[in-house]
Amino acid sequence: MTAAAADPVPAKNGPTVRTTGVAKRIDVADLNIYYGAFLAVKDVTMRIQPNKVTALIGSSGCGKSTFLRSLNRMHELIPGASVEGSVLLDGRDIYSPSMDPVSVRRQIGMVFQSPNPFPTMSVYDNTAAGLKLNSKRMKRDQMDAIVEKALRGAHLWDEVKDRLDKPGSGLSGGQQQRLCIARATAVEPDVLLMDEPCSALDPIATLAIEDLIEELKQKFTIVIVTHNMQQAARASDITGFFNIGQSGDPGILIELDETDKIFSNPAHKETEDYVSGRFG
């Protein structure tokens, strides 16, 4: 689609044949996100560009996770939770009544804060978990190939290729998180959402995941929530800054721009205060 053309960086990505999982653009318009009657995030309008890493930063409780989870309809799983406004995935509203939330989540994958491989499944089965869903039948060798590709893509293959049949929970924290990334990417989503994926990891494992993110954006649109300014500066192309007035007020998107600009010359004073550490 327009994805590859619009993005000058990964030109080599163009001719790759991919039936599913073409990085897609997300257009959020006037999004209000509620927990019951409580307005948690107010009036967000933003474009998330394909094949770019968009980082979301902001102080704790300003609604980054809430916003992220509204992008693949995970938010509505919380009793009483609701949204208003629209989220268009390449022009199609994921909240339109004809959209099945299950297929939305299949196209927009998610990696969570704490590494959580399925404890009863092996490394292999964890990676293949999404492939076996929706009563898809797949030949064993085809699945083997996808599992290997996903694990290689997550920079995990060499570490686990000899113990694919061992439980995924037996890996180290960093390995588990990469396993979760492999699990999420094996189904070839169009967009990958990551909510503080490195917060449980040491600096080395964190750098490994950042490298990985840099590579993953060739294939996916990536949105990552992080508390780590260096990480946002290093790993992202675009940065969005969320803030909140007082507690009880809704979070709002203050500013969204090229990462360089946000960190060197932001348009808003609040953003500058936050990125330079002079915040609250």
Partner: peptide, 17 residues
């Protein structure tokens, strides 16, 4: 654990899956 259930749903599992 909620995290496990959400992980499964985020992979595109139906509730029954």
């Amino acid at each position: 654990p909620r995290g496990l259930q959400e992980s499964a749903l985020a992979l595109g599992a139906t509730r029954w899956e």
